[in-house]
Every structure is written in structure tokens, then in C-alpha cells.
Design a binder for these strands. Structure first.
Lengths: 210, 210, 210, 210
DNA sequence: AATGAATGAGGCTTCATTCAT
DNA sequence: AATGAATGAAGCCTCATTCAT
């Protein structure tokens, strides 16, 4: 009946994402196993015990981190697909670029590397990721490819496999940044990298002119 | 007093690579941190203490694993480059396919995933890997691209960045196999995948026909 | 500003015994150490913090639980002794049966098991229990035995030790119910058990007929 | 093939019972939950980790403690039953006294109290104890009672319930010693206590002379 | 060279207790 | 008076590493 004081209430509601944010950063930096919950707590500015008010275990925290970080970008991608009116290649380009602006340039950028590193140890998380991120992401790219093949813009290719090949460089860019690059200081310029990728694709997907 | 039987002697010399092989398998399967040295010993058929006769620490074992697994393939690639006489695209194709036959289809296939997962925790290993694997691998692909641009087979592009984009799908294929795929049962057919990648590249790299 | 509703007021006065009652149940079920105060609060329908308005610590709660549960039965027993007019054996029987009706069939039935389990960890509680429960209980049984020996109804025996032997089966009955029985489903029928105990005692205490 | 040096080998074989012995003492003194494994290790003269070479968990250690402590006495009791030639009451007396000499006067004396305190938290241990200790113990006493009723030495009573009543004082004596007594300094003299118990039983079980 | 028993530091998790609201 | 979010000490358990044999 009594509404808790605003500050306290805002705290309570904000906590989970404060915690997942801190956890995401550390999981990506050091790996899941090498991250101590005490560090997560410290970075979030709470005590160790507080974590357990919001997450049942370290693994539950892991799952929440994944859940929070990736789904929003997919929802946005699905909106782009629904509203798109230009060429299929422009659609493809818009979809890949949204990955960059909504994931690559945010705190979620490290999630693909994290998933790659830990999938085998947490099959349940892997399955969740597959169903809610990978499957939806591939559906988006697949829709763009199919649209282009149907209207004669792209040549005929096996769609399922092409999806993988088209997405791979974007994923590798993210993964590289959070693995080797970060400890060698050899960053890749994403703008240039993505431009080249789109250039190759633009010409590579085209219905053969010859 | 007792002269070691020949089997035993042969055993002794083979030990280090028996150990790194067992370790590689487990590191890839479960991650470095989650692999217990006791398991490594068990899989190699020795006792836990024996590991320390050959490697000073778990990290030293890690380094040895990386060292042994990747260099041979690069040496072979460098031979191919030196001897090549056909088109530049055929050279590129030969180089990427050698990655598959000498790494992707051997016990070393899991190393890229392992490196991605652990680079940040072992900067020294990362640096070694960069100098001895990545730099040499990129040099090979870079040579093929430059050759093609010089002789008018490929259009002009930024070589350094194109190297990344060209290699990325091959790496992702390896990484996928040892992360998500292995716990979802959704394997990608490498032959088809690489064919599509090369198809896209063949047309994408071409000097514009228009 | 707001006058507490009557229900609330009544509530407040009843709180301490609502809390000890909930605590007793859980202490008996799971042991003192394994009972979380949060559970006690939950069962009593209050919050964790509220417990600390009434009891300084978990140990203080424990003491209160013991204090509340046993003393009333002893007072009743002392009344029976004072008013008794029949044979000494009838007195003994009445005393042992009162244990059953006032303790064994009430929420306090689990206290002896609880005391047995925790006495060593809480010497202060043990001492309180000894002074206020055991000593008074033994005095009652001792009075009945002495009365019987004086008037020739019972044979001469060492009273102090006989007290223990006479009481032991009643205690064991209670203890059994709240330890092994409750997790094996092998309840003892108290009526029959006590009847046999009294039968054995009736003949066992008798002045030898031989 | 190579036999370990004697000292090391003897150590390895003796360890489990050194550990259960230390654990028994502490479990009885402080209760299972309140005993830290570090204390157990300390008392046994080993390190914390060594415990886990022999027992999978604290609960497994608990089970082993029970297993080791009680079964030998029952085996001895079964031998006595098989060889007995005197009166049934003498048999009963021999059985109850063996409990005292083989349990009450040994390190196992605290087990009944321990079981009473923890049965509910460890149903599996409770079941083991029931099947391997209680059931066998009752069978022994039941055999003595039946023998006596058949040959006219004892009067007819419900055997199952009588078993409980006959055993109860012996159990209470053990339980008392390891709960209240040890923190009040009010020991009961076992010799006198058991004598009185047997005196009461001798006359109480007799076929009525009247 | 090889073993495997032993160690002990360190992590995850629990929960009695506190305190701002 | 009541709440429940927050704390942090403490315990169970793991596992890299050591060393006597």
C-alpha cells in the first residue's frame, strides 16, 4: 500500500541491469570462469551478497547478461525488414549496419566472443542464444537474400549457407575486437572493414553480368 | 639397474606431444579454465605429477599446445605461394583450402576458438600466436591479393582490410564448429560453405565488368 | 496520526508467541542451525526485520521458544501432585499421562528432541531447561516414587536413578516421533506404548510378592 | 607393480577411519551443521583438501561415520543370540549390556544422539540407520522377548511395542550423556541406571505370580 | 622417470544481522 | 511498528601444485 521512497524504488528496479552490465564487462574481459563474483559486485558498487538477491547463481547471471544484451537489436532489425522499400542489397546493408550500431558500438559488443568461449560449458545458455539470437538473426538476413533472388537482383545461391558466409565477417569483427585485438592493440577500423565487406558482397551477389 | 624396454624409451620421447594433444582436446572442449589437469593426465594415460615433469605450469602447457598445432600448416602455405603458377584467384583458393585440410580436418581445428576465448587472459600466448600464426597467415593472403591487383585480375582495394574480410568466414567456420555447433548439433557443411565463400569472392574481387 | 485498527493492536500483542510458535515448528523440523530466520518470518507472516523487534538474536529466539513451550505442563503436574488422593502408582500414571496430553499432543512435543540436539551448543539454554523443566519434572516423579516406597506400595529402590528409568521411555517416545519416525513413516502408537510402559512399571515397581 | 613403501601404504589405509573418528567426535560435540570440515581435518591431523580424497562431501562423511560406528556391535549381538543357552531374561540382559560395552563405552556412544538430531535433515542416512541398526537391534530384543513368552518365562505382551519400551531407557542414557549431561556436569552412573532398568524389567516382564 | 597422496589458497554460496525508508 | 534491501563473515568444495616414495 505504501509506495517506497523513490530513491529506494528506483534502485531496486535499476539493480538487475546495473549488475548484468558490470558482469558483461568482466565476463568479456576475463572469461566467465575467470571472473569472480566479488569483482562483479565491486564494479556494480554493491556487496557480494547482493548479487544473490537478483540472480540465483553465477550461471543465472550469465544467462541474464545474454538475454539483456542481444534481443533489442534483433527487434530493431525486424522492424527494418518490415518497413523496407528499397533494393534488397540496401536492405542487407541496413541489417548488417544495424548490428554494428546496436551491438558493435554498445556494451553488448563482447557477447558473441563470450558465447563462443562458453557455449560448450553452458548448453542451456547456448540453446537460448541459438533460439533467440541466431535463429532470428539468420531469418532476417535470409529474408533479404530471398527477396533479392526472387526479384532478380541477386543470383541464385543456397540461401542457408549464404546466410552464414554473409554474417561471418561481421561476427569475426566483433570477436576479434574482444579477443586478440584488445591485448595486441591492433584494432581493425570497423567502418573500412564493413565497407569492404559490403563492396565484395555487392558485386559478389549480383546476377552475373557475363 | 634395469634397462628401459624400447617401448618405454619410445614412450618417453613421445610424451610431450601426447600430453599437448590430450590438453588441446580438453581445452577446446571445456575451455582452459574449466579443464582440470587431472583430466589431461587421465586422457594422456599418465599421472597428474607427470605433467609437471614436462611443463612448468598449466599456462606453459597452454603455450605448448598452441605452438605445436598451427605452425606446420603455415609452412605448407608458404610453400604453395612460392610454387604457384596459375591465376591469383586460384592461389587464394588454394591457400584457403589448405587451412581446411591442414587445420580444419585435424586435431588443431579447435585452436582458433581456444585462442579467441583465452587471448585476454594470456597476453603472452596471444602475442606468440599473433607473431607466428596470424601475421604469417595474413602475409600469405596479402601476397595473393596484391598479385591479383598488380596483374589486373582483381580490382583495387585496401589490401590490409580485404585480408581480414577474406579470412573471416574461414575462421568463423572453425570457431562455430567448436562452440555453438558442438552443443546444438547444427553442423555446417564445410565443403558447401567454402564453395559459396569462394563463389562470392571470385565475383566480388573481380575488376568490375561494367 | 492513524489510529491502529483493533485487529492490528491485537496482532501486536500476539506477535511474540506467533513468532516462537513458528520458530519452534521449524527448529524441530530442521534443527536450529538449519533453520533460516527468513523461513521463521515467512511462516509467521512477517518480514525478516520484524523478528529483530522482538528478539535480539537467533539464540534469544531459541531461548524464548523453550521457555514458552514447557513450563505450563509442569505447573499442571504440580497441581495434580498436590491434589492427588489415590494410590502412588495412580499418581505416577497421572503424571506421565499429563506429559502426553500437555506436551506430546501439542506443539511443544518437539522440544525434547530440540534440546537434545542443541544442548551442547547453547549451554545457557540447557541450564535454563535443566532448572525449569528437568528438575521440576523429576521432583514430581520422585515425589510419587517416594510416596509409594514410604507407604509400602513400591519396593525400595534408589529414587534418583529410578526417576530416570521411569521417565526415559516417555522422552524417547517424543524424541523418536520428531527424529527418525518423521522421515521413515514408522510412527509408534503412543497409547499402546504408554500402556505397555505402565504395565511393566506397575508390576516392576511392586513390592516383591515372593 | 611396485609396492608402495609400507609407511605410506599404512597411512592410506588407515586414513578413512582416522577421519571418521575425528568427525564422529566433532559431530557429536557440536552437531553436524555446526562442525566445520576444517576442524575435522585439524583433529585428524590432515588438511582440508585431504578429506575430499576419501569422502565426496560432508554428507558422505556423515554416512561413513554412522556406518563404521554401529554395525560391529550388532554383529556381536547376533552372535550372542545364536550362542545363548540360559534363561530368556539373561539373554535380554546380555544384549542390553553389550550395547553398553560395545557402544556406550566406546567412541560410538554419541551416535544415537547424532542420529536423533540430524535424521530429518538426512533422510538417506536415517534410512540407512533404520535398516542397518534399528531393525537389526529390534530383531535381537524381539527374539529374546518371544523366546521368553513361548517358554512361559515372560507374560504375553505385544512384542513390537515392548521392544521399544525395553530399549528406550538404554538409548536415553546414551542420548542424555551427549546432550544435557555433558554441559551440566550431571552424569548418570550407567551401572546403577542399567541395574535399575533390569530390575524393573525382571519383575515387570515376569509371568504374573498372583 | 613416474606416481598419487597431500596441501591450501581461492571461489561460490548462504544467511544472521543491520538500517534507511 | 514494520519492511526488505543490503551487507559481509564464514563454510563447503575445487584444483593447481608439491614432494615423499
Amino acid at each position: 500500500m505504501i509506495v517506497p521512497a523513490p530513491t529506494r524504488r528506483r534502485r531496486k528496479e535499476a539493480r538487475p541491469s546495473e549488475l548484468t552490465e558490470a558482469a558483461l564487462g568482466l565476463f568479456v574481459e576475463k572469461g566467465f570462469a575467470a571472473t569472480r563474483l566479488e569483482e562483479v559486485a565491486l564494479r556494480a558498487g554493491v556487496s557480494k551478497g547482493t548479487l544473490y538477491l537478483y540472480f540465483d547463481s553465477k550461471e543465472a547471471l550469465f544467462k541474464a547478461v545474454i538475454q539483456e544484451g542481444m534481443v533489442p537489436a534483433l527487434i530493431e532489425g525486424e522492424g527494418i525488414l518490415a518497413r523496407h522499400t528499397g533494393t534488397s542489397f540496401e536492405l542487407l546493408e541496413a541489417l548488417l549496419r544495424i548490428v554494428w550500431t546496436r551491438i558493435g558500438e554498445t556494451g553488448s559488443a563482447g557477447i558473441p566472443k563470450l558465447i563462443v568461449a562458453e557455449a560448450r560449458n553452458f548448453p542451456e545458455v547456448a540453446r537460448f542464444y541459438y533460439e533467440n539470437v541466431i535463429r532470428r538473426g539468420r531469418a532476417l538476413v535470409g529474408a533479404a537474400l530471398e527477396r533479392g533472388m526472387v526479384n532478380g537482383e541477386f543470383r541464385q545461391m543456397d540461401i542457408e549457407t549464404t546466410i552464414e558466409v554473409v554474417i561471418a565477417p561481421v561476427l569475426m569483427l566483433l570477436i576479434w575486437r574482444f579477443s586478440m585485438a584488445s591485448c595486441l592493440g591492433r584494432e581493425i577500423d570497423p567502418r573500412e572493414y564493413l565497407t569492404i565487406h559490403m563492396d565484395l558482397l555487392r558485386q559478389g551477389l549480383l546476377r552475373s553480368q557475363v
